[in-house]
């Protein structure tokens, strides 16, 4: 069963993402939340996940910096950015940093499900 970590400083957005994950069959018990980049880095470094969903703009540590640190530490969990930063330069930056996929908010439930499926099918 897929285990997912959501790193987002918005509690509302975490709830929205959890709802979408439940719709595609992820069990609530297999979803963990981190309210900022620092906590996300700590949790992702200590536990194994099948997918990390990462916001970009967060207090303390930007999501892109968390991605860089996780990859530097050798953690190969697929990471999908879920962010309002939709400019092409940001997408390129995220992929270069080690993100596997990129979903721009606003997104439809179908977009979300398709990107999650793509992300979990890729390996770093």
């Amino acid at each position: 069963m897929m285990k997912v970590l959501i790193v987002d400083d918005s509690a509302v957005m975490r709830k929205v993402i959890i709802r979408e994950l439940l719709k595609i069959g992820v069990e609530q018990a297999n979803i963990q939340e981190a309210p900022d980049g620092l906590v996300g880095l700590e949790v992702a470094s200590q536990e194994s996940f099948d997918l990390i969903l990462m916001d970009w703009n967060m207090p303390g540590m930007l999501g892109i910096d968390v991605v860089r640190q996780l990859r530097t530490a050798g953690i190969k969990t697929p990471i999908m950015m879920v962010t309002t930063e939709g400019e092409k330069t940001n997408v390129v930056t995220a992929i270069q940093a080690g993100a596997n996929n990129y979903l721009v908010k606003p997104f439809t439930p179908d977009d979300f499900a398709a990107k999650v499926a793509q992300s979990t099918a890729t390996k770093v």
Binding site: S10, A11, V12, M13, K15, N57, T83, T84, E85, G86, E87, V104, K105, P106
Partner: peptide, 20 residues
């Protein structure tokens, strides 16, 4: 709290979409 957070997130998306 969720009301403020939710409006902030919706407007953040508006800003991000417009910026893009």
């Amino acid at each position: 709290e969720d009301m403020c957070d939710g409006i902030g997130e919706l407007v953040n998306m508006v800003s991000g979409r417009a910026k893009t």
